Amino acid sequence: MTKYLDIDNDSGIEAYEISSDRISVKFKGGSVYVYSYQSAGKDNIEHMKKLAKTGDGLNSFINLNVKYKYVR
């Protein structure tokens, strides 16, 4: 997994892993959630990938848009 930059130092996200049709997100408590095209929608996943790479806004986006739309 890639360490999440968290440029504002205000996120609950520790790391992420990007695949072609999904993103796995590891939260600071240790839980890992996988969001896929099928579970959360392609547009949401692609936006999450961009936020993950920039290191800002991913936690907020998850909470507001895809919180319970994970695979596992």
Rank of each mutant, 00 (worst) to 15 (best):
F27A: 02
I7F: 15
K49W: 13
A15L: 08
K42E: 07
G55K: 00
G29D: 13
I7D: 15
N9T: 08
G30A: 05
I7V: 07
S31E: 10
E46D: 12
V25M: 05
F27P: 05
E46Q: 05
K49F: 12
I45P: 15
G12Q: 02
D43N: 01
K42M: 02
I45C: 14
S24Q: 06
D10A: 14
G41A: 02
M48W: 13
H47L: 11
A15P: 15
Y33C: 13
S19W: 07
D10Q: 12
L5H: 15
K26N: 15
H47F: 11
G12N: 12
D21H: 00
V32Y: 11
S31R: 07
V32A: 11
L51V: 02
H47A: 10
S19G: 10
S39I: 04
D6V: 05
I13N: 05
R22I: 04
D43Y: 00
I18P: 15
D21N: 07
A52E: 03
I45Q: 01
H47E: 05
N44S: 09
I13K: 01
D6S: 08
K53L: 11
Y16A: 03
A40C: 12
K53T: 08
L51Q: 02
K28D: 10
H47Y: 11
D10N: 15
E46Y: 06
D43C: 00
D8S: 15
T54L: 14
D43F: 00
A15W: 14
F27N: 00
Y35E: 13
S36N: 07
L51G: 10
Y35N: 02
S24H: 06
M48I: 05
K50R: 08
V32E: 08
G29T: 08
K50F: 13
G12Y: 10
G12S: 09
V34N: 14
D43V: 08
L51F: 11
L5I: 09
N44G: 01
S20D: 03
A40S: 12
G30E: 03
I18T: 13
E14C: 03
D43S: 09
Y37H: 06
N9C: 11
R22F: 03
S20Q: 00
N44F: 08
S19P: 11
G55T: 01
S19T: 13
S19A: 14
V25I: 12
G29R: 04
K49Q: 02
D56R: 11
V25Y: 14
L5S: 12
E17I: 07
I13C: 00
D10K: 09
